[in-house]
Design a protein around this nucleic acid. Structure first.
Lengths: 126, 126
DNA sequence: CCGGATCCAATCCGATACTG
DNA sequence: CAGTATCGGATTGGATCCGG
């Protein structure tokens, strides 16, 4: 396989990239993994994911809704109740996504070891 | 499974997050998928990935090297030649990563359909 | 309870110019 | 060829305040 044959057509790249991009940002994977266990309302999600700000959780959920990965259901009680649920599409993408997360969980020590080694070398001026 | 049981300990989250984070940025997946086909030198990589700037390609490769996913080999000829190769660790993470990319490739149309639908609703003020 | 609006700091990233 | 250095615009993400 020659180098120049090793890429997809630009249009396809951009399409696929736009799918991977929405998964790549800071909170998306955490939110999806949390929701994959079952529907949750906003405040439950927020408590389950430590460190997420209200703004970012809202933004992340909006993006997931737009991409068709979660649905947003408003129950107009007072105060309002909003539930988030994975769609079929969302559950499908969780299969490869969970595989990746599982890999990360099992191999984090190898990555951090590589980092320590690299940083040690850099510190020695090499 | 209760909401509050649905998260990993914070330290683990941060560790796993740091692994997923490095994969999440703009060029990493493209670079890894390109290198997974075999070693390439800097200029070949740059030509294979349309749109990447020299600066970002360098930064992406440095991060991948630090994380132990690729090795950097300098051949001190004039001009210098630098080859990038996936490590065993890198090839391992490609398994779940390729699964995700394949999913994205096969389902891009469903995602873009969801987006069009969402945007159409938003435009109608709903 | 849910989330929009605003402000601001930090960073990302491309363009450009310069080095061994 | 394979970078490093620097600049500046764009984007990200947290904090805070406000409204339904």
């Amino acid at each position: 396989m020659k180098p120049q044959d090793r890429y997809l057509p630009p249009e396809v790249c951009r399409e696929v990239g736009s799918v991977l991009e929405c998964i790549g940002d800071k909170w998306t994977i955490l939110v999806m993994r949390t929701l994959d266990g079952g529907s949750l309302r906003f405040s439950e999600l927020r408590r389950s994911i430590s460190g997420v700000s209200q703004k970012m959780l809202t933004a992340t959920l909006r993006a997931l809704e737009r991409d068709g990965f979660v649905t947003r259901t408003v129950t107009p009680t007072v105060p309002a109740r909003v539930d988030y649920t994975m769609t079929d599409l969302g559950r499908e993408v969780m299969v490869p996504l969970n595989a990746l997360a599982t890999w990360a969980l099992r191999n984090q020590h190898r990555v951090s070891a590589a980092r320590r080694s690299y940083d040690a070398k850099s510190a020695r001026g090499k």
